[in-house]
Write a protein that binds this DNA or RNA. Structure first.
Lengths: 208, 208, 208, 208
DNA sequence: CATGAATGAGGGTTCATTCAT
DNA sequence: AATGAATGAACCCTCATTCAT
């Protein structure tokens, strides 16, 4: 399901430690190369060279260029998820504002790691359907978590918590992406963060 | 002014009706081709063929592929601006909610024309600095307009109207883009629109 | 003979004054364009534009680009011949050294008119066989003239006057071309001229 | 040094025997193709095909078409230099006439290898400034060598040996080029050679 | 497993030439 | 005669992918 297509499945399931390490090295250099040169100019030769390998070797770990991309996205998403889980799962922050702040900060952190790479991965590069499906799945999980939190907070007053949760997730993701990726000189990240938190809190607590 | 670089300036300034028409036909087919195949696969030959011309003719109207793209963006932006001006300038809608609704609807209309094209134009394709500058200029103008409206409405309560105006503009743009471009099965456009309006109204009117 | 090929014959024999004038205008601009941009970058469109015409009109006076080139060479050669005839036919200069000086100076004058054009015409551009034949014919005529002069001068002592005459013609042409066309910083034209005259005089007068 | 521009530097410095061989094969076929078709019609595809390779391979050894040309010129010049050094360095030929004959013969040999190629290389094709500079350097070195020889010969009587040496070098080069490259039916190479030697000897030995 | 030379389809772009007006 | 838009073959070059070693 999803990633089952033969075209994108890794050629070998890495069981030996050495293989895993090489695979990761390739992904790391792919990240650097894409981030620095963009998707189109991120050639497989460049990636291999950056990893200290020959192209041939790269093709023993990934069936084609897109597979590298997909794996990169997957890794990036996993990192993001970990950021979020770590942040939200750390303890009971108390107020809604605290929760929302946590959410926004985690998302910002996630994008800040490497804005260039993020832009390539989520805008410039072609995203095969299996990737989109996976991203939607991730969004769904995030919505579930957020909905759970919202339900636990008495100050939250919305008609439909699930809808609100999804809207919050999408909003945070889109806006953070927009602000970190675009280098908008008119928008300072700190004040942006505060306005975003304010907006979301008001959205979730205003009386009908 | 703006895109003054020789590299991207249209090759002939069309004065005769025939030329203008051909130019537009090229842009129309470019829109269709980019939308259907993406930027990289949208070859100049394909665009020309789709327009019922030969490549050579395309290059009599545009100095290179990127210039076609730039012109397309510019046309798209002009359309969007017209949408907005028409909507906001039509009359005095009265309440803040009406105004915000107008803004959101205009933006949705703008994206709905051709979501695929929008995605190519603003994400996938390379955007030369001139274009980015122009887009920032557009955003600035929108912020000025919105700030003017906010200032005229007594129910608006924010610390800094300019910051709020920019935040509103960016939010509407980003979220509408996200929802219309991405085919998120879990997000219905109608309810999304209502939630967005609600959120913005609350953001702008809640007591501090 | 020679220029009889259909491919290069001018499309119309210009009988009306207007036509002749336009033809010349085209050749003039071709000269300017070739000289400034080289043969490859001297496009027919550029030539026509420089002449204040459309490409279509150019093709009513010349069947193709090469025909323009050929005509240009022919004109250039005719000018050169006139230079030479004027110089050598002016009167009786007397000594061999005077004659040789005249020959060399005429050749230098001929090249100096437009070194860039000369280089394009005689090096860079493709020279169809009919052109080569014509140039050889020109050389032959020059050899005859020079041989006549040599024969009339008592100080000339060579075994075979015809061979010597041809050798002189070729030498003058080649060396002048070389020095004027190439911008050799180590070779001053004035001293070069003197050395050349000296060399030729010695060649023609030394005792066996 | 010399051709330092990135644009023309060979793509890989060949260290393995295989690579060197392929590189040479490409240059050889480039020589054949340029010689037969001229520069403009000597397409990279044709060159690659003639070498039994695909275009892609050609571009692994040379960054662009001009780089092939430059390398060809350099090789040609190196061959010529070797010809000359071998000839002049072989021993003490004795008389001035012997020396001059050696020089002329070496130059003829150099051009005879492939007259067509020579014409393309030094006339038709675009010569980047780096190349011109290098050629001037070569000329300078030749002038130094010739001047040294002239100085050692008592029969030489000229005012300025350096000027004379340069004049001799330029003359030999230009005339040999002219005669070998042009297929002048009226000029037999053997008699041309004798006349040239005669002329130079007289130039260098006649009493003032 | 690794290497890197080789492949070749395909892309952007130019320009001599034609032809409808 | 003149125009200039239109044509399209041909060019240079790139890069994902393969394969002999």
């Amino acid at each position: 399901m999803g990633i089952g297509t033969k075209r994108l499945r890794p050629r070998k399931t890495p069981v030996q430690a050495r293989s895993v390490e090489t695979r990761d090295r390739i992904l790391d250099s792919a990240a650097r190369v894409f981030s620095a040169h963009g998707y189109a100019a991120g050639t497989t030769n460049r990636i291999a060279a950056e990893a200290g390998l020959s192209v041939g070797s790269l093709y023993q770990y990934f069936p084609n260029k897109d597979a590298v991309l997909v794996e990169l996205v997957r890794r990036h998403v996993a990192d993001g998820t970990r950021h979020l889980v770590d942040a939200l799962g750390a303890g009971a922050p108390g107020s809604l504002e605290d929760w929302v702040g946590l959410l926004v900060d985690a998302m910002i952190a996630n994008h800040r790691d490497d804005p260039g790479l993020h832009q390539v991965l989520f805008e410039e590069a072609p995203r095969p359907p299996e990737l989109l499906a996976e991203l939607h799945g991730l969004e769904d999980r995030a919505v579930v978590v957020v909905a759970g939190i919202l339900r636990s907070l008495p100050e939250v007053r919305v008609d439909d918590i699930d809808t609100a949760a999804r809207f919050v997730v999408v909003t945070v993701e889109s806006l953070v992406h927009r602000v970190v990726a675009t280098h908008d000189p008119a928008l300072d990240v700190a004040t942006f963060r505060d306005e975003l938190v304010t907006m979301l809190v008001r959205y979730l607590t205003s009386p009908r």
